[in-house]
């Protein structure tokens, strides 16, 4: 039987319904974590999926629903999480929206909308939950899902890349401020990953893959494996880092 790296840990994952978030949820459950699975809308399909996944791995998964564009809703959702009197050991800020448009074609309001979900929502969620994490006996791990677009300067990524760059900076600041209390904060910067958020046309994708070292697109599980490592005690000495999971883009 393989070792369960998150046995006894409790994790909050936003955007757990699909893509990278769903892969992280599966990986964490497989490794013994109890999970609060955050998503926007309550649906029977999601409830069933969470119940089946919980039963499959013998863990507890609690669905929590809130809208990331609404501070009051976020606070309500987080309060629901806090009402369960368990330590929160891991927070994965994964939920996000994408935007691909040239800078001159991106209205300020559109950029604000992207920042709302990709930056301010994780900012608020982390601000509230980290207060509780500070009191854990054995620390905690905050994992922000950023993007290579937040590190590299990619055409068409003014709003999305800027929001992810802000998230990277926030990650480092949190690591700096909470490190002395055992709370680690790291970011993962996925490159081209096979999810519903993939916005490249075929020609652009071919060109990018040709330039990448591994010549292939990543899978959500590739990101989930990195998140598992950062969440686990195997990464106990790692904080303030941004880990690219991109198959060797732009080297």
């Amino acid at each position: 039987m393989s070792r369960k790296f998150l046995k006894g840990k409790n994790a909050v994952i936003t955007g757990a319904r699909q893509g990278i978030g769903r892969a992280i949820l599966e990986k964490f459950a497989e490794n013994g974590a109890d999970i609060w699975a955050c998503s926007h809308n309550k649906t029977e399909e999601f409830e069933t999926d969470m119940a089946e996944t919980a039963a499959k791995y013998g863990v507890e998964i609690i669905p929590v629903y809130f809208d990331l564009t609404n501070d009051k809703e976020i606070q309500k959702g987080v309060k629901e999480i806090l009402s369960v009197k368990k330590e929160i050991n891991v927070l994965v800020n994964n939920a996000g929206i994408t935007c691909r448009a040239l800078f001159q074609m991106t209205p300020v309001q559109k950029a604000r909308d992207v920042f709302e979900v990709d930056f301010f929502a994780p900012y608020l969620i982390t601000q509230i939950l980290s207060k509780k994490m500070l009191r854990n006996k054995n620390g905690a791990s905050i994992i922000n899902i950023a993007s290579t677009a937040g590190i590299d300067a990619n055409s068409g990524r003014a709003a999305y890349g800027s929001a992810k760059a802000a998230l990277v900076c926030l990650t480092r600041v949190i690591a700096e401020e909470l490190g002395s209390k055992g709370v680690r904060a790291n970011a993962i910067a996925p490159g081209i990953v096979n999810t519903g958020m993939l916005t490249y046309d075929e020609k652009m994708l071919d060109e990018l893959l040709e330039e990448s070292l591994l010549k292939k697109i990543g899978e959500p599980e590739d990101v989930a494996d990195t998140a598992l490592f950062l969440a686990s005690d195997r990464a106990a000495f790692i904080t303030g880092q941004v880990i690219r999971v991109d198959g060797g883009l732009l080297l």
Binding site: V78, L82, K131, L134, S180, K181
Partner: peptide, 22 residues
């Protein structure tokens, strides 16, 4: 200090079952 402040707030929120505004 600032970290101690957050610990204090977390304890108060827990103790009195409230969530304080920033």
């Amino acid at each position: 200090d600032s970290v101690g402040h957050m610990e204090l707030i977390a304890e108060l929120e827990d103790g009195f079952d409230i969530m304080m505004d920033t």
